[in-house]
Write a protein that binds this DNA or RNA. Structure first.
Lengths: 125, 125, 125, 125
DNA sequence: GTGGTCTAGACCACG
DNA sequence: GTGGTCTAGACCACG
């Protein structure tokens, strides 16, 4: 896994795990790989993965069963989506609007994005 | 100036200066406030502002005249826009698309953004 | 290490590191001494060594692995030689030619240099 | 005049004046432009030019006549050549030898220089 | 242990 | 007045 320079690694791993859950690679109620395994696979210190797990547990996305490891909580998907919606509308969207104004981005510049949006709208009907 | 916790101060000052240039508050060819002045105004150390200025100089946005201070380079606007466009299209846009798909955002969810975009498109005609 | 008065310390340390790499004392892919170690050994501040390392990283000569230290990049030798050749041919050689003309230096004056040159030429065959 | 970043400006101006003297643009016994004139022409502070003149006077290259300005001393040419020979053989030549060895420069690399040398040798006969 | 950022403060060159 | 370098020392993230 490649990490961005400017963001804490434990947060980046957290994003990755949440993505895996949403994709269904880690399913609700399932055990996810151990701190040890993940740390080795990602070439990262175990403390870092530990920090990620603790954070996800605090958000109610993972659950810890003593001696057995970490499991995907039963409402993990809903929780993740709620968190991401909140972050999107309070942090990302305002930034995007500011940038699109500053860079004078047009509808043409953002075609791939608009296409995706249209597709989502159609599917939700 | 208020600084965000999760980003380096010297980078945040850099973003602020680039914003001021784009807004026309610091004009091409003009001298910008001295390291000392900016440091005092922003309640940070001189070395921190120094680091910002050096970085912006390396990017060709500021120019240094010995003993006289820093000046906005003649192609500062173009350089800044080029940098921000690149960041937007290679980093931010892919993320937005992924999120909009993941969260199944519809055109209705993004009305304020689409409105801004339409306005940009109209102005560019 | 002895430092010259008229040149910045962080640049002199940079020259020293590049010399060590060319001599093969720091080998491609190897870890070089830590900021702390080098600072102590050279009796300078950590920040100064930090500045040197950052500069060499920007030049692609060193690479940084989080929490592990700095490593000699795989094309460090080529990069250093390219930099030094450029400096030699664009800055030093023109000066030497001007001086040799101004001082009317003859081949005899420069025997030791010509001898070294001949030796290089012979070895390159 | 363009100044190098890494060398004191007053020294660079000194080099320029010595060059002008050797070229015969400033002749032995002649008055050279005033501090004021030179400072304006070079877009430099008067203090800087003053420092240059003081240094050249200490080396016996310029002479100061109260209220009249600075004049090229009668043995300026010899003095300059003596200084430059000394600098060349004790500082520059050792560096060139080291670099030519390090970069494995061959006679071919240095053709323009060798040609100049040969020409000097022929003229001195 | 590793490097990175930031502060406070000194000293220097140039203006 | 201007910026640049350097030190001493604190604090932080990652290992």
């Amino acid at each position: 896994m490649e990490f961005a320079e400017n963001k804490n690694i434990f947060l980046q791993i957290g994003e990755w795990i949440m993505d895996e859950i949403l994709k269904g690679n880690f399913k609700t109620g399932d055990r996810i790989p151990s701190v040890r395994e993940l740390a080795e696979e990602m070439v990262v210190n175990r403390n870092t993965v530990n920090k990620t797990f603790t954070m996800l547990q605090e958000h109610g996305i993972l659950e810890n069963r003593r001696g057995m490891g970490y499991f995907v909580s039963h409402d993990a998907n809903e929780t993740i989506i709620a968190i991401r919606r909140k972050v999107f509308f309070t942090e990302q969207l305002p930034k995007i609007i500011a940038v699109s104004k500053q860079l004078k981005l047009t509808e043409k510049d953002l075609e791939p994005f608009l296409k995706q949006l249209k597709q989502n709208s159609d599917e939700s009907k």
